[in-house]
Design a protein around this nucleic acid. Structure first.
Length: 700
DNA sequence: CAGCCTCGAGTTCT
DNA sequence: CTCGAGGCTG
């Protein structure tokens, strides 16, 4: 092993030696993290790995000023991607809704108008090219650049401050006039010429050649070694505002001007447009010049310029109502469809997948594409052996667009969609009105069983590390794990197994022990995760949370679901009265509990697990804790969802319809039948203001 | 009953 | 990311 310095005690090192060794340790530990987390193939023992980390910490303790931005000690836990600390975005980084044609744009304008009640008044929009790079957030405090982060999932990204500092385009300080806190959002990209040069250099050095500028930019920004990033031609355009301590402009256009004043590069093509026609003219103009631009763009973004209007328009789920991305037509490619195969999902859904002769589309080699369902194949008349046009939807998921007519070529017969499950051979049926055909094998279908297990251990369910698809499949096929409860007896059974896990192909003592640890650490689990993990149809994360909150404990939930089988029971009424749960979701829940084998599975799991009751919100001093409230009509001070979220935080159960159990009905403007029903039942009704007074300050 | 909006389920590749 | 479907509002 190189670097003899490591043999010295930490306090015997010179500064230079220490710096050098810290750099090496950071790279080495990152390397092992990668092998372990991403490839399931550690090459050192846990003890050796721990020794590396301890050595790193010892040197850092001795030379605190040498702690590196990418130091392993600064990573939160073991970052699964191996590398950077997580950063929580104080203002979430949103995505945009997409428009694909003039009609979508007209609709967008109409919606903005309707929402703002504008009549014929013009709406000014700022139109700017949508750069095909990666979004980042740059935080300035008292005018100095303090932190930069990737978008991540929009809520939480990765801290790439050190790497961003190497960008020549990025102002390190923005002067005296800047607000105390200013977050600027922008796009990091690599220009086309720079990309070609970079690949030439990479190739000459025998290093990895990047598929496209965006991948090159992403790879360059996520380098562990800041020096590598510094050598890459990364560039920046700033275009949006995150958290800010004081107003910096009244319009988006004004904000762009301020950005330029602070020294940020902004896109030179950006311009103000009013009306559909101007916007579309800009789109056509930029589309025509697309090939001559020095960087890749994948569309145009339109934003309502006035900030006060943006505020009023607000958001729909995670996208602003005041902006839209007008996408350019996706890049397409032709290839041959070798054959159609059928996958069986967790719910038994049979999904056809096109196996393609590999082809490059938008810089990525694609060899499979989803065909969605039976009707889709029939509609496009896709047959095996056809030549097809492929594109990547939203530049990500490959799809087959159409069949290319070939003169004189004899086509295969129409594709016969199987009516039996290709795995378990049970009949596959299609409910009237539904698009999917489903295997009826249920619990006996091996494909469904494997998919259910995958779901059970997946990230948002039990989150068991080190148990990938391949391992699940192998364990299932060998009869090691057939039902979820078997996971938790795996370690105990392993002791007297003929072939213990550590001797299986691809496993060693360390990885086996790691897996057992990972499973062990999940014996305690939150109720909502547990409910989600069961994989009940139509019960995803959101519904699982809802059920956990409403029933509190597993026992209460189970008892209620079993009793709710009687549609006249109060339990059924309670269930469908939960906001967002209707008769169809209720039916799937009841069906799950009515299946004796599911009850057996639950009993098996209960023996192994400790299911935590849902954490009740802190409702001390809440005047409305435990009350059931119904909101109806249009609220003025907040959206219904905000009102609901606040009420829930105060321990309120928000119901969808009025019943004898309802404590209050909060009546907004233009309330209809619910207010009447409240009167009939003698339920207390409150105006929005009375409600706010009742919950007082705590609701704000 | 139409027109949202939200949620679930399924998928690709790095 | 996209599609389809469920649920709610008006």
């Amino acid at each position: 092993m190189p670097g003899r310095a490591r043999d010295l005690p930490a306090d015997g090192l010179s500064r230079a030696q220490a710096a050098e060794e810290l750099e090496r340790l950071a790279a080495e530990i990152a390397h092992h993290d990668r092998l372990y987390h991403q490839q399931d193939a550690p090459e050192v023992s846990d003890a050796e790995y721990d020794a590396l980390r301890r050595r790193n910490e010892a040197i850092e303790a001795r030379f605190p000023d040498l702690v590196r931005a990418d130091s392993p000690s600064r990573r939160v836990g073991a970052a699964p991607a191996g590398g950077f600390a997580k950063v929580r975005h104080r203002a979430p980084m949103l995505s945009l809704s997409n428009a694909f044609d003039a009609e979508d744009i007209a609709e967008f304008f109409a919606r903005v108008r309707r929402f703002l009640n504008l009549g014929e008044a013009p709406v000014e929009l700022v139109a700017e090219p949508k750069i095909d790079g990666l979004s980042i957030s740059l935080r300035y405090e008292r005018g100095r650049f303090v932190q930069g982060a990737t978008r991540g999932d929009g809520t939480e990204g990765e801290d790439v401050t050190a790497n961003l500092r190497t960008l020549g385009d990025l102002p390190q300080a923005i002067g005296d006039g800047a607000p105390d806190v200013l977050e600027v959002r922008g796009e990091v990209y690599i220009a086309r010429d720079d990309f070609l040069n970079l690949n030439r250099v990479q190739e000459a050095a025998g290093a990895k050649v990047f598929a496209n500028p965006r991948n090159a930019a992403a790879g360059s920004l996520r380098q562990i070694d800041t020096q590598v990033t510094a050598g890459r031609p990364l560039a920046l355009f700033a275009y949006a505002l995150g958290e800010v301590s004081e107003a910096v402009a009244e319009t988006h256009w004004g904000f762009l001007e301020r950005l330029r004043g602070w020294g940020f590069p902004t896109n030179p093509l950006a311009q103000v447009c009013s009306g559909v026609d101007e916007v579309l003219a800009f789109y056509d103009d930029v589309l025509a010049r697309r090939a001559d631009l020095p960087y890749d763009i994948d569309g145009i973004v339109y934003k309502v310029s006035r900030f006060d209007w943006q505020e009023r328009l607000g958001f729909v789920s995670r996208a602003p109502r005041w902006a839209i991305a007008h996408k350019f037509p996706a890049e397409q490619a032709e290839t041959r469809l070798a054959r159609i195969s059928i996958q069986v999902g967790r719910t038994g859904a049979l999904t056809p997948v096109a196996e393609l002769e590999p082809v490059t589309v938008g810089g990525v080699v694609v060899s499979r594409a989803t065909l969605h369902n039976e009707d889709e194949i029939a509609r496009k008349d896709i047959r095996e052996g056809d030549r097809v046009v492929v594109q990547r939807a939203g530049d990500v998921i490959p799809q087959v667009v159409a069949v290319v007519a070939e003169k004189g070529r004899r086509r295969k017969p129409r594709y016969d969609f199987p009516e039996i499950c290709p795995v378990c051979e049970s009949t596959a049926t299609r409910e009237p009105g539904e698009a999917v055909r489903r295997c009826t094998g249920g619990l006996i279908c091996p494909a469904q069983s494997v998919e259910r297990l995958r779901h059970f251990v997946s990230r948002n369910a039990f989150d068991i590390d080190g148990l990938g698809d391949k391992h699940i499949r192998a364990f299932f096929e060998d009869g090691l794990i057939e039902s979820p409860a078997d996971l938790f007896t795996l370690a105990a059974r392993d002791d007297d197994a003929e072939t213990p896990l550590r001797e299986r192909e691809g496993w060693g003592p360390t990885s086996a022990a790691k897996l057992f640890d990972a499973i062990e650490s999940r014996r305690r689990i939150a109720l909502d995760r547990f409910i989600y993990a069961l994989g009940i149809r139509q019960v995803g994360q959101a519904t699982a949370k809802l059920l956990a909150r409403n029933y509190g404990t597993f026992e209460a939930w189970r008892a209620a679901m079993t009793k709710a089988a009687d549609p006249d029971s109060p339990d059924y009424a309670d269930l469908v009265n939960i906001d967002q749960i209707g008769p169809l979701v209720a039916a799937d829940l009841i069906a799950f509990f009515a299946e004796p084998r599911n009850q057996t599975i639950l009993d098996g799991l209960l023996e192994q697990l400790d299911i935590e009751a849902a954490v009740a919100p802190d409702v001390s001093g809440s005047p409305v804790a435990g009350k059931t409230v119904v909101f109806t009509g249009t609220l003025e001070s907040q959206s219904r969802n905000e009102a609901k979220a606040r009420a829930e935080a105060l321990g309120v159960k928000v119901a969808g319809s009025v019943s004898g159990k309802t404590d209050y009905v909060v009546v907004g403007a233009e309330a209809g039948s619910k207010a009447r029903k409240a009167a009939e039942l003698g339920v207390t009704t409150l105006s929005e203001q009375e409600w706010l007074d009742l919950i007082g300050r705590s609701g704000q």
